[in-house]
Computed example of a mutant assay.
Amino acid sequence: MNWHILQNTLVNISFAISLTSLFTCCISLTFPNIKNLNKINYIQILLINFSLSIMLGSRWIIEKYFPLSNLYESLLFLAWCITTVQIILEKQIQNQMISSVSAPIQMLIIAFASFALPQEMQKATPLVPALHSNWLMMHVTVMMLSYAFLIVGSLLSVLFLVIIQTKNFQNYQQNNEYYMQTNKVLSINKYSLANYSNTKQNNTGIYSLKRGNLLTNLDNLSYRVIGLGFPLLTLGIISGAVWANEAWGSYWSWDPKETWALITWLIFASYLHSRLIKSWQGKKPAILASVGFLIIWICYLGVNFLGQGLHSYGWLS
């Protein structure tokens, strides 16, 4: 069996389904009265996740290391993480906004990995000595999952800003003032994603965000998702420091990747501080989260295009 052809086929299938999923989301948002579109989209996300799982799993078995040796594998794993986050969130919350922000970004990631990267970069490459460690799976997996949560949460904030700039919600200001007066900022660790003030449990036991103010729901959902991603980012940075000490003899060397990871952490720490301590809601924290979205991509991709630093191996250098 030609595993390379099989893996390329699975990636192409993932891209085709993600493109179809994007159209399904657009139709669902345009014609919300059409039944079962949300279920169809959820099945499509499951299929994308399954295809990427088989592709990455086969690569893992054949090459005998966790498939994160180059940019191609890293991008596909990030796409897998985003679909996993989407599955988790949509299992708990029935909200079309999650798919509307997740579908385009996962499609673009898969498309970039499949069609923009040269064939040489799509081939598995031997791990450099520093990556022959059990920390590879733990550190990189946690970082990628944190990126996935933070990307989805930040895109919800971007969508929030787009909506308030393009459409005049006459009752938003009134609803937002009422919300701020009657609801305290909830602790992330104490409450689950389902505990919104404007949610109601339906007959199947799944909480729905279809009712209530759209902007308030977007604002709260972004806050919750970022709140899940931030602890993962913190854990990823700490585990990376421990691994760096084992591999290079120093916990922190101000490598470009490390520096931008710290900047990313500070941006989202400021976001959560503004929500928890300052009780900010609405536009101001959404701007912070939107800046965080750009910083994530600079940290993840931007510094590697320079080909400098200890983290530049296996990428575009």
Rank of each mutant, 00 (worst) to 15 (best):
P67V: 15
N220G: 15
W260G: 01
I237G: 07
Q92S: 13
M97C: 07
T199V: 06
W252Y: 12
W135T: 06
F293H: 06
L127E: 12
S279W: 05
T199G: 10
N36C: 03
F169S: 10
L209F: 12
K257T: 06
K210F: 00
S157H: 07
Y147N: 03
H139K: 12
I17V: 14
G292Q: 04
L218I: 02
Q308D: 06
Q201V: 11
Q119E: 11
H139W: 09
Q92W: 10
L215H: 11
I238Y: 14
N8H: 12
N168S: 05
P32N: 11
S74R: 02
L46E: 03
K167H: 13
S157Q: 05
N183V: 12
E63A: 14
L145T: 08
S279Q: 15
I109L: 11
N2Y: 05
W280P: 04
L310E: 10
C25L: 03
Y196K: 05
K200V: 09
T199M: 13
Y191W: 05
Y179T: 07
Q201S: 01
G227K: 04
S239C: 12
W135P: 07
E90P: 03
L76P: 00
I82R: 07
F149M: 13
W243M: 08
I48P: 13
L117T: 06
S53Q: 08
